[in-house]
Amino acid sequence: MRTITLMALTTLTLLGAAFAASGTTTPATPASTPATTVAGPMLTAGQTVNVNTAPLADLEKVPGLGVKLATAILQARPYKNQADLVKKVKGIGKMNIKKFGPFLTY
């Protein structure tokens, strides 16, 4: 058992050294670069999207909304207000609506 553990540690050490020597690194994202999604850059403060008319790509740009929630929003349209959205869409609650609520209009 001790031999197997020692061999495993040696292998991991060698793999780590080989990876480090390869020069492969993950570049840091500059702080000035806006967050992006597949659909494009995320919305920033003051920007809004109408949940009753926006296509999926626009809903995906709302911070805190992923593809799953954006798709659920599309499928449960129309909405009268924020309370109606929370009521109709499973996965949207009082806590996470605080994150993306300011980016939505009805």
Rank of each mutant, 00 (worst) to 15 (best):
T3A: 15
L6W: 09
L6V: 12
M7H: 06
L9Q: 08
L9D: 03
T11L: 15
T13N: 03
L14T: 13
L14F: 15
L14G: 14
L14C: 15
L15F: 14
A21H: 08
T29R: 14
P30Y: 08
P34I: 10
A35D: 06
A35S: 11
T36L: 02
T37R: 14
V38Q: 08
A39Y: 04
G40F: 01
P41A: 12
L43F: 02
T44R: 07
G46E: 00
G46W: 00
G46Y: 02
V49C: 04
N50Q: 02
N50C: 02
V51Y: 06
T53C: 09
T53A: 08
P55H: 09
A57V: 12
L59N: 07
L59Y: 12
L59G: 11
K61F: 02
V62N: 00
V62I: 01
L65I: 04
V67M: 04
V67G: 05
K68S: 13
K68E: 11
K68R: 09
L69G: 02
A70S: 15
T71L: 04
A72N: 01
L74W: 02
L74F: 02
L74Q: 13
Q75H: 05
Q75F: 00
A76K: 12
R77T: 05
R77I: 07
D84V: 11
V86Q: 09
V89D: 03
G91N: 10
I92T: 04
G93I: 09
G93N: 13
G93E: 05
M95P: 00
N96E: 10
N96C: 10
F100R: 07
F100S: 10
G101Y: 13
F103V: 04
L104V: 07
L104A: 09
